[in-house]
């Protein structure tokens, strides 16, 4: 299959909230299987950029291509049928998990496969068990979210996103709400996915993880990309003063 069909391309995306410019002429591309870390000071527009990629957020200029589907500037980035195709290919995991509290771990994972993809419940459950096993939660299938730790919740959320069989995952600061030892179990799952060829776009503050696991690091500051390259160069010998300033702050 042509690798373009699984790539993500962002061209000249602009986004404003009223008078404030959140994203300014943002362009980059992510190839299949790449792991890209987006870092930068808070308020730089990282989360907004991520949410534009699967159509949760509209934008005011530019175009985003996910596989062979386009998101365009305007109030409705794409018709719902297109959004659904994009969201099936690009899952999303949130900082605050957003598991469905009235459903068990297993039910959380099969919800979309059964009701969006139309999978038979038995097939969906078989796949869901495999996914929960993979993220190390084989023993917690019947648990409700409130009975799980933060790290366990986030791993259920990852399994839930994977259940749609996406080629990539958008991860929005998914370890920020977790204690250090719980972060490790979530990052281990990400490593595993990366090795398996999953495309990962992470908004993150985990510099160590970015350095070790990312193929590229993108630095976003004031809505603009100020740096884009391999972690050794961006984190080691940054070209842009904003990057150096940011790195000094987070590494102190």
């Amino acid at each position: 299959m042509n690798k373009d069909e699984f790539g993500i391309e962002v061209k000249g995306v602009c986004k404003r909230f009223g008078q404030r410019t959140v994203l300014h002429e943002v362009s980059f591309r992510v190839d299949r299987g790449e792991t890209v870390a987006i870092i930068g000071p808070s308020g730089a527009g990282k989360s907004t950029l991520l949410r534009c990629l699967n159509g949760l957020c509209s934008f005011d200029g530019g175009v985003i291509r996910v596989g062979s589907y386009d998101l365009r500037a305007g109030r409705r980035p794409a018709p719902f049928a297109v959004l659904r195709q994009i969201r099936q290919r690009l899952g999303m995991v949130f900082q605050d998990f957003q598991l469905f509290p009235h459903l068990t771990a297993l039910q959380n994972v099969i919800e979309a496969p059964v009701h969006v993809l139309g999978l038979a419940r038995r097939d969906a459950e078989r796949r869901a068990r495999a996914l929960l096993d993979r993220v190390g939660l084989g023993d917690h299938m019947a648990a409700y979210p409130r009975e799980l730790s933060g790290g366990q919740k986030q791993r259920v959320a990852i399994a839930r996103a994977l259940a749609m069989d996406p080629f990539g995952l958008l991860c929005d600061e998914i370890t920020s709400a977790l204690d250090p030892e719980l972060k490790a179990e979530v990052l281990a799952v990400l490593e595993d996915l990366r090795r398996d060829g999953m495309t990962l776009i992470l908004v993150t503050h985990e510099m160590a993880f970015a350095r070790r696991a990312a193929d590229r690091v993108i630095v976003l500051a004031d809505g603009e990309i100020v740096e884009d390259g391999p972690p050794s160069r961006v984190l080691g010998t940054p070209e842009h003063p904003r990057t150096s300033r940011f790195l000094e702050q987070v590494l102190l």
Binding site: N54, L56, F80, L83, R84, R87, Q88, G91, M92, F94, D96, Q98, L99, F100, E111, A112, H115, V116, R160, A161, M164
Partner: peptide, 14 residues
């Protein structure tokens, strides 16, 4: 919370 709507939307749910 609005996050529940977003979580469902990001799974392709209408």
């Amino acid at each position: 919370p609005a996050g529940q709507w977003e979580a469902a939307a990001s799974l392709g749910m209408g």
